[in-house]
Design a protein around this nucleic acid. Structure first.
Lengths: 207, 207
DNA sequence: ACAAAAAGTTGAGTCATTGCACTTATTTAT
DNA sequence: ATAAATAAGTGCAATGACTCAACTTTTTGT
């Protein structure tokens, strides 16, 4: 959930890498500030680059796309997912751990913690960002599926694990669409735990 | 599954509309041919417009984006989904109908039926198209959720129905990623029907 | 101190997509 | 039948994201 992409204890940062990181951060910060202020579409790449005092070409050496300026936390999302499965309290069922994780996991940059709400509003009100956000989660379907498979001691490509991983990540998309996000996630995991028959025991015999 | 966007029996086509439809079709056909021949990224909008002998401005009056040239069947996907739920054999459980639909539904243009394989290869090998394809399915989450809710006679916003709709559509994404598409869809629907406990009865008590 | 490697710059260029002003064909109401 | 309204289509210019190639400035390893 934190920001650092290759976190931990780098042996010796070195001046070069420090400067590079500084430029990167300057870009991300400038971008976030401008986007929050004027809206994603009303800010151009050039604006961001100028605010960080670098050329647009330099910007693209640090971030592959305009959207990526906002989401610098891909690696952390994946790590947190795998951790939620692997390092959970022994005694906690797998699905409980996943449910809790998807219910509480929030993505933000620690320095801007005050603006979490504004940040999420920005994402939800900008199609391009909303889309990128969804993909950010889905991109880790394979890693999550592998973590689940490992947890169960089954084959890496186990179809059931793949399906569960996808469904789990898809719950993220439910939060922004539904009127009651939390209730929808809960319902989704109830469905995954007990199955359609377990959740709608009455209805199905009618036909 | 067919192509016609506003199908059925239009009262009186009218010359204008016929010409418009012809131009649209010329564009879609030219695009598909060029894309299959050279690949999506190697063909520019200008190439397509010229092949159909119209200006690029005209092209964008018919299709909102380059990707949309390939997928002219949004409305049909949605209609087929709703139909699969509403008009199913009475006696067929809801989930069986959904399973069958996701297992067999194929998207293509009838005139190019020969090229279905090449068409799907094109989609799967072009990130931009793959992405657009996924969204095409997901765009209908609300409609499917409503159809399901109506079928059950519950509230339109019922969270469980919303979740089921999303999960059902997400199975489409499983087909292109997994080594054994069909098996993965089956596993996914087994999970949705019987739940995690029903599918992995043994494993969960270990912790 | 010096040469390779990496960061950054500039400037030109591609490509999708949009806006605007204008022409032409078709339809509709008279 | 015809004029006014409507919609298709065109040309052109612009914006904005992104790429490429060539060149300068650190930084670093030796």
């Amino acid at each position: 959930m934190t920001e650092t992409t290759t976190a931990g204890a780098g042996p010796v940062p070195g001046r070069r890498e420090r400067k590079k990181a500084a430029t990167r951060k300057a870009l991300a910060d400038a971008a976030l500030e401008l986007f929050l202020e004027r809206g994603f579409d009303a800010v151009s790449i050039k604006d961001v680059a100028e605010a960080a005092d670098v050329s647009t070409t330099t910007l693209f050496k640090h971030f592959p796309s305009k959207e990526a300026l906002v989401f610098d936390m891909d690696a952390d999302v994946e790590a947190a997912l795998v951790t939620a499965v692997r390092d959970r309290d022994p005694g906690t069922p797998l699905l409980d751990a996943l449910r809790r994780h998807m219910l509480h996991a929030r993505v933000f940059k620690p320095e801007h913690e005050r603006q979490i709400t504004a940040f999420h509003d920005l994402i939800n009100s900008t199609p391009a960002l909303f889309d990128y956000y969804r993909r950010m989660w889905m991109r880790h379907a394979r890693a999550l599926a592998e973590a689940i498979a490992a947890d169960l001691g089954v084959d890496t490509d186990d179809p059931t694990c793949t399906a569960l991983a996808h469904f789990t990540l898809e719950t993220r998309a439910l939060t922004s669409t539904a009127p009651t996000p939390a209730a929808t996630i809960e319902a989704a995991f109830d469905l995954l735990e007990r199955g359609w028959h377990g959740v709608r025991p009455d209805r199905e015999r009618s036909a």
